[in-house]
Design a protein around this nucleic acid. Structure first.
Lengths: 342, 342
DNA sequence: TTGAAAGCGCTAACAA
DNA sequence: TTGTTAGCGCTTTCAA
């Protein structure tokens, strides 16, 4: 009677079918079963059949956590967005997710909620999962965040903006150029008393600044800038329009930092019987799909969000498979879509 | 010279800081460092300080894949949605995600893309990650899917619908009741020639059927049902309205299967100078936030999507921590929000 | 309160 | 082509 035998430590796992079970049933070594499942070309047809049979019979689903730990490749990509509801970024996320999925990757989604503290917590949580790549909406401004990301060694792609100092890869467009171009566009239409309605968003701020800069060289007066909190609310747009008209009733063109804000402006204008575009021309931002079919249809700045997502997925996959990516900065540009409101 | 020494197999991990490194630096055993990080109460103040110091100095971020493998708890929750762009489910997902995050869980997001084949692949991919819970939008009808989910042993919550045979937990509301109630509501307003515009969606179909049933007992004629493909497109609504008016120009009330479709109806009505609600009353579904502030404001069926997400998170967390959940079926109900279009 | 041993389920490295 | 061995980084179990 050996007490050691009786005191054997036992530990039950999840109780699920493992590769060992499959291998035993197929009469091969675990590693052979692994190869049959993952790289069928490396295994003889008979063995392949035996293993696949065993997989079928047992209902085996590989444990990717274990696989990831062993291979240091989680096949997980993390994406961080400010919000998911009525967000312009969702087209990008959808394209990203579906391209990744087809390549065998899963997406982890984190919401930073426009809060720096939360973003930092989120970053640690994300890095702890050891994803093979991290997708960021916008560029990471926080020094702490940059350091942490750099230290993690995980491939990162920043998006929806341009910077000279990306952490790693970058896919975006110039918000300054947008401001300039929209201003030129409206000046070209003969508008001289221009205004901006913008959300509390650093990128929207840059578009507004550039807009004002160009107008200063061709307008009749300075650009009136009205600030609002939430870019995803029609109501904010209505309220901003009320304030704007109180301050500058002769305004003849407005550039909004989102399509939804522009829709609010249209709503308020209609209530006051102000004609758009006759009295006031209106340009939005984002090209929310459904607004193209409204009457009047909104003129807006179109960003190819899906292209950003797809490109980001490709970059991240390349890097995850150990291939370098070059060039690693892509400017996808933008276009001004002219419809009825200008 | 022992050749065994020279032929030692080496395998490099990710190269990141591990708990061992931290423990060594702090002069304690790895398990002690683990306790200091995860259950600080179990460790003496001095040891705690030494370990936390080492964590700071090294920038250690725990590897949750390894932890998950060892403890059979991934602290990962998977959510499956049909789509993320302009989807009514995103409020639910946002609430789910943020409640989960505060409890230390991460969300994996999968898009089924309204395709059964993709959903099945997705299910396997998801189960392979060994999440501590799975969130489903809608109930799982596919027998294969149900079997796989059941076999996995992972807690599941189905949402946005009711059924007598849930896989596990369920948080939803009755689409039949909605159809009945909206019909009653419109009949109560004196409308007698009613119509439905509905997307190709099984749940929308059930609402339409119930609607027609109730109208059959109080209307002047059968409900005209117009089918459209995409519930997230204003354009579909406009086109449906055109067809509807061609077939039944005397229609005096329309129930749409989404707010966006209703917006399309409003757009087309305006173009034709049909007065809403004077000539035609209009009810949407979903209560997309911004439509409350349009003019005229859309009457609609409101679902508390955020409540569903939060409740689902709580259920899933309870089960992940090994506590039973009871009752495990919750009907969150709905409300008809009357605004200008009725 | 602390630690040693064992092992979660898989794959990299090497050998046959 | 197949198998052996070791170990990914952590936590459970047991013992002190």
């Amino acid at each position: 009677m050996n007490s050691k035998v009786n005191s054997k430590r036992t530990r039950r796992g999840s109780g699920a079918i493992t590769l060992r079970d499959v291998a035993k049933l197929a009469g091969v070594a675990p590693i052979t079963a692994s190869r049959a499942v993952n790289t069928p070309g490396q295994v003889s047809p008979e063995v392949l059949k035996k293993v696949l049979d065993a997989v079928q019979r047992t209902g085996y689903v590989p444990n990717r956590m274990a696989g990831g730990l062993a291979s240091s490749r989680s096949r997980l990509i993390a994406a961080i967005v400010p919000s998911t509801v009525m967000s312009v970024f969702m087209e990008t996320i959808e394209a990203l997710n579906s391209t990744l999925f087809d390549a065998g990757y899963q997406l982890m989604l984190g919401q930073s909620g426009y809060s720096a503290a939360r973003e930092e917590k989120l970053l640690d949580a994300v890095i702890g999962r050891r994803p093979d790549g991290i997708f960021l909406t916008g560029v990471m401004h926080s020094g702490k965040g940059r350091t942490r990301l750099l230290a993690s060694g995980i491939p990162v792609v920043e998006t929806w903006d341009l910077t000279r100092t990306p952490i790693d890869m970058l896919i975006g467009f110039s918000h300054l150029d947008i401001g300039h171009e929209v201003a030129k566009f409206l000046l070209g239409k003969g508008r001289r008393r221009l205004a901006v309605i913008r959300a509390e968003d650093e990128r929207a701020g840059r578009r507004a600044t550039a807009f004002a800069e160009t107008v200063a060289r061709g307008g009749q007066r300075d650009v009136l800038v009205v600030n609002v909190g939430d870019s995803r609310s029609l109501k904010s747009g209505r309220e901003a329009m009320v304030r704007l008209l109180a301050q500058a009733p002769d305004t003849d063109a407005i550039f909004c930092s989102s399509d939804l804000l522009a829709l609010g402006v249209m709503t308020e204008a209609r209530a006051r019987r102000i004609s758009i575009p006759k009295q006031i021309a209106l340009v939005g931002f984002g090209d929310v799909p459904f607004l193209a079919d409204m009457v009047p249809a909104l003129s807006t700045v179109r960003i190819n969000g899906a292209a950003i997502g797809q490109q980001a997925a490709h970059f991240l996959i390349e890097r995850a498979e150990g291939r370098p990516v070059s060039p690693h900065i892509v400017d996808v540009g933008f276009s001004i879509v002219e419809r009825d409101t200008t």
